[in-house]
């Protein structure tokens, strides 16, 4: 049905209908748009990447991993929880110090440093990693995960744990 605005009554009816639909459309849009933003956009992260001081680089022996325990704030919505985290810190060279996540990349077991063999050994399924994190043998699919690191005034700062790339080769 099309309203043909000819008779005075019809044009008034058309005027009413335009306003009824138009105003309800505006109201719906003004409610729906913020609601979609509210539900779909990620919240502003105020406490973004935090750098945690983990070790004094000058105290590290070259190629001798040290297990470091530190506390980190985890932000989950409105909850901020302080959690214990662990990293294996190794000074590979004077220029490069790395920090490995404490879990084997195979199934997440905690590995340890075998001093006699100078290798990381995972007791669960015998994955073996070199001091630089590379897979030497065992079922581990990829090298050890590393924390983002930066060095400031001789202190090693750790950021987010990043999944390593590459294969066992």
């Amino acid at each position: 049905m099309v309203d043909v605005p000819t008779a005075p009554g019809t044009s008034r009816r058309g005027f009413y209908l335009t306003f009824i639909y138009g105003l309800w459309g505006l109201i719906a849009a003004a409610l729906a748009a913020p609601a979609l933003l509210y539900l779909l956009l990620p919240p502003k992260i105020r406490r973004g990447s935090e750098w945690i001081e983990a070790a004094d680089v000058t105290q590290l022996q070259p190629r001798v991993p040290v297990e470091v325990v530190f506390r980190k704030n985890r932000v989950d919505g409105w909850k901020i929880t302080s959690e214990k985290e662990t990293a294996w810190v190794v000074k590979l060279s004077d220029q490069q110090t790395v920090a490995f996540g404490p879990q084997c990349t195979h199934l997440g077991c905690a590995y340890h440093w075998d001093e006699a063999k100078s290798e990381f050994l995972c007791p669960c399924h015998n994955s073996v990693f070199a001091v630089n994190g590379a897979v030497i043998s065992g079922p581990a699919p990829r090298p050890l995960d590393r924390y983002e690191t930066k060095i400031q005034d001789g202190k090693l700062l750790l950021g987010q744990l990043r999944q390593s790339t590459g294969s066992k080769a």
């Binding site: 933003l37 509210y38 919240p43």
Partner: peptide
């Protein structure tokens, strides 16, 4: 209610989260 924790322990913090961090939360 989608972003609000209805317990005295969390209600306040979750409302602050709505106001300060959720997009359009202040408007809602």
């Amino acid at each position: 209610a989608f972003n609000y924790a209805p317990t005295p322990g969390d209600a306040y913090n979750s409302l602050r989260y709505i106001l300060a961090e959720v997009t359009a939360g202040r408007l809602m």
